[in-house]
Design a protein around this nucleic acid. Sequence first.
DNA 1: GCTAGTATCTTAGATATCTAAGATTATGCC
DNA 2: GGCATAATCTTAGATATCTAAGATACTAGC
Lengths: 184, 184
Amino acid sequence: MTMRSRDAQTILRHWREAVPNDRLAHLVKDATRALVRALQVRLAEHKVSFGHWAFLRILWERDGLTQRELSNLAGVMEPTTFTALKAMERLGYVLRRRVNGDRKKVYIFLTPKGRLLKRELVPLAEAVNAIAVRGIKPADVNTTREVLLAIIGNLAQDELERDLPMPSTRALKHVGSARRRKRA
Amino acid sequence: MTMRSRDAQTILRHWREAVPNDRLAHLVKDATRALVRALQVRLAEHKVSFGHWAFLRILWERDGLTQRELSNLAGVMEPTTFTALKAMERLGYVLRRRVNGDRKKVYIFLTPKGRLLKRELVPLAEAVNAIAVRGIKPADVNTTREVLLAIIGNLAQDELERDLPMPSTRALKHVGSARRRKRA
DNA sequence: GCTAGTATCTTAGATATCTAAGATTATGCC
DNA sequence: GGCATAATCTTAGATATCTAAGATACTAGC
């Protein structure tokens, strides 16, 4: 299958030739795909799925978090988290436990097995990152970081504004209690 | 459901606080999610799915392309294209036709209905883009573009190198005939 | 002109993600 | 204390994507 290699080439040529102003989204998406794929193939060699990586990563820093908290940190919705953690539990990477106190919450703990993956997997992510930014000026990478953050911020802000029934500036102060506008 | 708004806030805080060096991938992915979601909600108001957008976009520029060509241009694999175009055919946006000549190929043509969507949908993408880059220096946006392109290029290059049985520099010249290494 | 290989589309099945809504537990107000 | 509301997890079902492999049509070399 020659396909994927040719694809990469084609995509690149495509972008180099014409990048109209309103295709930043497409470009960012292609970059994500490239990054994700690079990490994915490496993780696969260690039998870890990309979907689990995001949670492992957070848990290595600190476990005993709830699913809700993990969702927020990973930036995904709860069903995604739920499914991933169930699978990870089956694989023996984590334990899911309700503790005394708020019995709604499910706390997630790494098993030794899950913890051991860290030493194995983190280098893979570092390798992908190193490859990705090879030959790019660090200052430009930083600029990119800032720009992406600003974009995320702008869109989050916009989403809030679209949510508010009364689109006044003052209303933004009360963001914490904002309610989603129901969409068709 | 207050969730999504809080999520956005949480994600942002998260990123502003600590962006370790090897999480560029995560950041790019979050940006993609934000951009995609912004466009998605707008497209949904016009009953168009995000998955179809990418193909419409290409077809508005030029139709009569094959599925293979569309896949390459959209940067997705063929089953994705196939599924999307089948759905779009059902919706009456495109026709799929084999023509005399190479009867393997399926050529895609916009219907008038599909063509009319352009005027309706392009402004949505432009709006999202405008919101996304609001307040960001155009020069920085350009830098970001360049960096993302370079990243895509670096990773494409790396993928090729991983594919080649003999990882020599010279081998890269023969990229066109490169064969995928079989992965476990 | 047959056969082997290649190109293209298609099918099948997996993964990652989402929204919407259901179930359970906690909280707060009367 | 009991009911309404909120928080959290869970289920259900949809979408977008992928890989692997099957089916069909073309091409080239003998």
